[in-house]
Write a protein that binds this DNA or RNA. Structure first.
Length: 504
RNA sequence: GAAUCGCUAGCUCAGUCGGUAGAGCACCGGACUUUUAAUCCGGGUGUCGCGGGUUCAAGUCCCGCGCGAUUCACCA
């Protein structure tokens, strides 16, 4: 078949159905003088859900000719039957049967329907409700208007669209074919709204900080790099908003939060997307304990907002009304790896234990790094019920305040659910001298080849030097919260347009 | 990065031992004024993911590549 682009909007890529529909569209314009893409408004007065609610009381074969319904939606299926036609109309709220009779709409409109309206098209309709003999609430159409024409066929009406690749790449087709997918994203929206409501009920101000900047700090992660032409400088996409929000607390903005996209140039799997949504919150005069309470409240309220405190993910049910568990990293390692770190006093001892446990050891690890490795290897996956992990070593917590009782450890927690990290929080380090040392330590790690070590942010130190009040801060991975509350097994199922490799 | 599985019509899928590409839905034409996976009659619309190879003959066998899914590794 020769490569050619056919004129008038036709393409050699078109399949048979698309060619027929394009041809139909041209004929609709030339034969009827009707342009289905002209600027049109339609005064929709009812959604299908509201129609369903208003006329639920109708009995089979009952018809309410006095009521007027004015609605609109996408034609999903058409059942033509000579001088009568049934169709299913869907909108964002529901789906309802339409009944067009030759007598009810008139001959001219009925012929137009037969000739020009297809499944996939958007139509506005005026009619009244009735219930069929078989009990189906139906709109008896008296007038309708073709609002927009679809020239590409809908996915199959019975099996729908299941091909994951098409579902993610062409999410619009997924959303058309699978109403339950629309419901997941409505829940996502409600969860995020609930977070905002909870935060604002505590007097927290929503702020926006740079996505693009010269330094990407606040987390251990590889950033995306880009270039600003006019400034002539390399820039990075943010990996966290932490350092900016703490500057705002220094700047006397009080309680602040941001819900926004972070970007990390790392692998993609069922728990990670290169861009993901993070909520970060900072409260002056508070500490990590306040953040624990806030974390529980945020998650519980979000669950309530979508209807239930009983959640199920990956076959495991959880009751979010119960208080969340607490365990220290050392306790978790003792329990799940069988290693008692209280008896380990040197890095050498720790490395020996780690080798025994089968961990890959280079010989430079401190006992604190080993503790963390043992937790990640043996502990993490066991924290199924919501659990605050406490007592992180200072070495792996460069922005976290030390525990005054044991300065090798910090006042920090991570919240785990289903064995996955959902939140990370701490009493924010506000000692500028200590913060400088921590950054210096990170800089050493970076120089040793750790490309995920924190960058040294001199201006952030400057901010801390200006005085950060005692502050509790927390970050929550919103995508994971949505996954656990909706039962989605992949992060791609809670992100409308997940990252995909280009096909060709 | 590795392994496994998948990629065939718009969608969901079948395709035997290597022997002329199939079904349902959708779509096109016709009948039908209460159907609802409507029904009935007629019609197959295709770069079998891409590129090589073996063979008289490849959707099928072999090699390479691409994309996706899952698991593992990596990664907050």
């Amino acid at each position: 078949m020769p490569e050619e682009i056919i004129q008038d909007g036709f393409s050699s890529e078109d399949n048979e159905i698309v060619r027929q529909r394009k041809d139909k569209l041209l004929r609709l314009r030339s034969e009827e003088g009707y342009d289905p893409y002209v600027n049109e408004t339609w005064d929709r007065q009812d959604t299908l859900a509201s129609v369903r609610e208003r006329f639920e009381h109708l009995q089979p074969e009952e018809e309410d000719t006095n009521a007027v319904i004015k609605t609109a939606g996408r034609v999903m299926t058409v059942r033509r039957q000579g001088k009568a036609t049934f169709a299913d109309l869907a909108d964002e709220t529901s789906r309802m049967q339409l009944y067009f009779q030759l007598n009810s709409v008139g001959e001219k409109a009925y012929d137009f329907l037969k000739k020009w309206v297809d499944s996939g098209d958007w139509i506005g309709i005026i009619g009244h409700p009735c219930r069929t003999r078989r009990g189906e609430l139906t709109i008896m159409v008296t007038e309708y208007r073709l609002l927009s024409k679809a020239i590409r066929p809908l996915p199959e009406k019975w099996h729908g669209l299941t091909d994951t690749e098409i579902r993610y790449r062409r999410r619009y087709m997924d959303l058309i074919a699978n109403p339950e997918v629309r419901e997941v994203f409505r829940k996502r929206s409600r969860i995020i709204s609930s977070f905002r409501e909870t935060l604002e009920s505590h007097g927290t101000l929503e702020v926006e900080t740079p996505i693009l900047s010269v330094l990407a700090g606040g987390a251990n992660a590889r950033p995306f790099k880009t270039f600003h032409n006019a400034l002539g400088v390399d820039m990075y996409m943010r990996i966290a908003v932490e350092l900016y929000l703490k500057r705002l607390v220094v700047g006397m903005m009080g309680r602040v939060y941001e819900i926004g996209r972070n970007f990390r140039n790392e692998g993609i799997d069922t728990m990670h997307n290169p861009e993901f949504t993070m909520m970060e919150v900072y409260w002056p005069y508070c500490n990590y304990v306040d953040m624990m309470n806030l974390a529980e409240e945020l998650i519980r309220n979000a669950a309530k907002a979508i209807g239930t405190l009983e959640i199920e993910w990956n076959g495991t049910k959880l009751d979010l009304s119960k208080p969340f568990h607490r365990i220290t990293m050392r306790e978790a390692v003792k329990k799940y790896a069988g290693v008692d770190f209280d008896t380990i006093k040197t890095d050498e001892e720790a490395r020996a234990v780690a080798r025994e446990k089968g961990l890959e050891i280079t010989g430079h690890e401190s006992r604190f790094a080993v503790l963390n490795m043992l937790f990640e290897e043996f502990g993490e996956e066991n924290l199924i019920e919501p659990t605050f992990l406490l007592g992180h070593p200072t070495e792996i917590s460069p922005l976290s305040k030390r525990d005054p009782e044991d300065t090798d450890y910090t006042h920090r927690f991570e919240l785990f659910m289903y064995g996955k990290e959902v939140a990370n929080a701490f009493s924010e380090l506000n000692d500028p001298l200590d913060q400088r040392e921590r950054f210096e330590d990170q800089a050493r790690k970076k120089a040793e080849g750790d490309d995920e070590a924190h960058v040294f942010d001199e201006d952030f130190i400057n901010a801390i030097e200006a005085g950060l009040p005692p502050t509790g801060g927390m970050g929550i991975g919103m995508d994971r919260v949505v996954m656990f509350l909706t039962g989605a097994k992949s992060i791609r199922d809670v992100i409308l347009f997940p990252a995909m490799k280009p096909k060709a």
